[in-house]
């Protein structure tokens, strides 16, 4: 099979790599399609591993799951040589500027996989030092749920990225920019709420009002004319 067979649709999805077989050994297609096809099959990922998820990431690259089957085994620890970043693990506010710098250092075009719930949304760390999702500062292409995601779902993420590469899609803006620095749920401590309510109740009591939220029950007048109702 010659190289041109690839464009004849034997190996790739013909709709993704639009090509016209002009007969003989000639195929006409777009440069874009060829480049994307090349990119897709030789992803160079960069692990940005910080926590537990990084261990499962290692498992994916090691012998059992073997990411080499998808042409993505050339792990680069330098962002300048990578086109796919795996953010594996919790990103805390202190790490934020570092992540941003490293993302900016990657050459375009670049893709980002947010691995695990911590990177995607802060996970179960709704607390004072944890970024509630890396998309507050960098664009994310694929979110992988799980704590940690199994290596299988990571491989699925790589395939999703391949899909996006063939379609020429790429996330451009941090989707959660508007949330940057917003407190996670639970910021409003119950203690605060209770203290606030107590103050409010006292204030209203001084004005002779019942506490907010108390539904005043209307007492029906009992008297001769109420009798007539039943009459």
């Amino acid at each position: 099979m010659g190289i041109l067979d690839i464009f004849r649709g034997k190996l790739t999805d013909p709709t993704a790599c639009a090509g016209v077989h002009a007969g003989g050994d000639i195929v006409t297609t777009t440069v874009d399609a060829v480049v994307r096809w090349g990119r897709k099959s030789s992803i160079w990922p960069m692990p940005f591993g910080t926590a537990c998820c990084a261990i499962e990431f290692m498992a994916m690259t090691a012998s059992h799951y073997d990411i080499a089957r998808f042409g993505a085994e050339v792990l680069r620890f330098s962002p300048r040589q990578a086109d796919l970043m795996f953010v594996a693990g919790t990103i805390v506010d202190k790490e934020g500027p570092v992540l941003k710098t490293i993302y900016d250092q990657m050459p375009d075009p670049k893709w980002v996989v947010s691995m695990g719930v911590c990177a995607s949304s802060g996970g179960f760390y709704r607390s004072y030092h944890v970024m509630q999702g890396i998309d507050e500062i960098i664009p994310v292409d694929v979110y992988v749920p799980g704590c940690p995601p199994s290596p299988e779902s990571l491989i699925a993420a790589v395939m999703k990225i391949q899909e996006r590469i063939t379609k020429g899609e790429q996330a451009k803006r941090p989707q959660g920019e508007h949330r940057l620095g917003a407190p996670g749920d639970g910021a409003i401590d119950r203690r605060y709420r209770r203290a606030f309510w107590a103050k409010d109740d006292a204030e209203r009591a001084r004005q002779g009002l019942p506490p907010r939220g108390v539904v005043p029950l209307r007492v029906l007048p009992t008297g001769p004319d109420s009798e007539s109702h039943h009459g």
């Binding site: 506010d93 202190k94 934020g96 500027p97 570092v98 709704r126 607390s127 004072y128 030092h129 944890v130 970024m131 509630q132 940057l180 620095g181 917003a182 407190p183 996670g184 749920d185 639970g186 910021a187 409003i188 401590d189 203690r191 605060y192």
Partner: peptide
């Protein structure tokens, strides 16, 4: 932040390391 009267999830953004 570990003081009891610090709200659990009150964050502060760091811009420059």
């Amino acid at each position: 932040p570990m003081r009891k009267d610090y709200p659990t999830a009150q964050r502060h953004v760091l811009h420059e390391p």
